[in-house]
Amino acid sequence: TFYNFIMGFQNDNTPFGILAEHVSEDKAFPRLEERHQVIRAYVMSNYTDHQLIETTNRAISLYMANL
């Protein structure tokens, strides 16, 4: 899942690491979701930090390219 992918960046001092920290603390994050459209919609609806949203979009693109 995307959640498992992004958790691989925990403790990294990178934008993906920052995203992983936010996702791990977000109890409502769709952890079992595999459809990138649902993940993107969730982030757009629940996150207000523009940098975090952009990082999510980049992470989703990388995740999709590696499926």
Rank of each mutant, 00 (worst) to 15 (best):
M44Y: 13
D12K: 13
V23H: 02
V38N: 07
V38T: 07
F9A: 01
H22T: 11
E33D: 06
D12L: 11
A20W: 07
F5N: 00
Y42K: 00
G17C: 04
D49L: 05
R31Q: 07
D26G: 03
M64S: 07
Y63S: 02
V38Q: 07
N46L: 05
F9T: 00
T1V: 05
D26K: 02
L32G: 12
E25K: 15
A41V: 08
T55K: 03
N66T: 14
Q37S: 12
L32R: 10
Q10M: 15
T48A: 10
L32P: 04
N57I: 15
H36T: 15
V43Q: 00
N57A: 08
E54W: 06
Y3E: 00
L32A: 11
Y47F: 08
R40C: 10
N57F: 14
E34G: 14
T48M: 10
M7K: 05
P15D: 13
L19E: 01
E34N: 15
N4Q: 12
T14A: 04
I60Q: 01
Y47W: 14
D12R: 09
M64D: 05
A65Q: 13
Q10K: 15
E54T: 07
P15H: 09
N46D: 02
T48Y: 09
A65V: 09
S61Y: 11
E21K: 15
I39A: 00
I39V: 09
N66F: 15
A59T: 02
N4L: 11
N13E: 09
F16D: 00
F16S: 02
P15Q: 11
I6R: 01
H50C: 10
H22S: 06
Q37E: 15
R35W: 05
A20K: 06
N66L: 14
R58Y: 11
F29H: 04
V38E: 09
S61V: 13
S45R: 10
V23R: 01
N13A: 09
M7T: 05
M7F: 03
R40Q: 12
D12I: 07
T1P: 08
I60H: 02
Q51K: 14
F2E: 01
G8S: 13
T55V: 10
L19C: 02
M7P: 01
A41H: 11
V23I: 15
A20G: 03
F2A: 00
N11I: 05
N13H: 10
D26I: 04
